[in-house]
């Protein structure tokens, strides 16, 4: 840009600029290599259950996803827990986010700390303290679906609060003021203006909560008793031979969540264009 640069400096600068971008793209590729492997292995025709490598192409894994019934029941249990945990954590977390952004009261900093701490604790500590509580309260024999659900709601809650809070804090207050000026009451303003504006944040939080819940292993493993979720199933088969259907589940999860993220983004752009017109 500056005219005083020697050709050598200019060349150095060109390399510098593109080197960083190239480095960034290489890091992105590093992040995606395992995803390619997951997709590839979902079409794998393994010769032996014990050797984990690509032996040949087949559609069998996709046609018979439930060849191992234990896997499908683990997946459906994970989905049930994930949906329930997402629903409850999203409702409670959104309420908390509204309280923290829109209302002034005593003890806000304590509330903020209580929301931050679960995210700053290693999962193994969160899981073992919950197990200690369940055992001390006499629920050692009843570990299972409900104790997993309780744990998942607990660790999803903080992530929901910070996601929705970020969206709420970035909201333009003038829009709500305008609605009130136009004689909308508080309820109408909330339903017609505030909620639709915050909704993408809530949806993002719900998506995050579901994937956190569906994916959790360490906390779940401590509090599951004899119940098996999908990550626990994968953990179990990792020791004795992995059925390729596990990769089908991984691929489906990836495709669905990317579709949701892209859909939300496209919808946002469409709305922005409509507003600009």
């Amino acid at each position: 840009m500056s005219p005083g640069m020697s050709p050598l400096q200019r060349m150095g600068r060109w390399i510098g600029q593109h080197l960083v971008l190239a480095g960034g793209i290489l890091v992105l590729i590093y992040m995606f290599v395992p995803i390619f492997v997951v997709v590839l292995m979902s079409f794998n025709d393994p010769k032996s259950r014990l050797v984990y490598r690509f032996d040949g192409f087949t559609l069998q894994n996709w046609l018979n996803p439930c060849a191992d019934a234990a896997m499908c029941s683990a997946v459906s249990r994970s989905i049930q827990i994930g949906l329930l945990a997402t629903l409850i954590a999203t409702v409670l977390g959104t309420m908390m986010a509204f309280a923290l952004v829109r209302h002034r009261f005593h003890g806000r900093s304590v509330a903020n700390l209580a929301i931050f701490l679960p995210m700053a604790s290693p999962e193994i500590v969160l899981g073992s303290s919950l197990l200690a509580l369940f055992v001390a309260a006499g629920f050692a024999g009843q570990l299972g679906f409900w104790t997993i659900l309780i744990a998942h709601i607990m660790f999803c809650l903080s992530f929901v609060v910070i996601t929705v809070r970020a969206r709420l804090a970035g909201l333009d207050n003038n829009l709500e003021q305008a609605a009130m000026d136009l004689y909308a009451n508080e309820r109408q303003t909330f339903l017609r203006v505030t909620f639709p504006l915050v909704f993408p944040g809530i949806l993002g939080a719900a998506l995050l909560a579901f994937s956190l819940s569906f994916d959790d292993f360490i906390i779940t493993n401590l509090n599951a008793g004899n119940t098996t979720t999908f990550p626990m199933y994968v953990w179990g088969v990792a020791q004795r031979g992995v059925p390729m259907q596990v990769n089908v589940v991984g691929t489906v999860m990836f495709v669905i969540s990317v579709a949701i993220v892209v859909g939300v983004e496209l919808n946002r752009r469409r709305q922005e264009k409509a507003l600009a017109r």
Binding site: L28, F32, Y52, P231, V234, M253, F254, V261
Partner: peptide, 28 residues
């Protein structure tokens, strides 16, 4: 690029880690 950063996060942690087992394997 931001979407691409979070995208891998949505595939099961354990399944992704198993992929590394294949990538780093002795015949990989």
């Amino acid at each position: 690029m931001l979407v691409l950063v979070i995208a891998p996060f949505f595939t099961s942690f354990l399944v992704r880690t198993l992929s590394w087992k294949l990538l780093l394997g002795d015949e990989g």
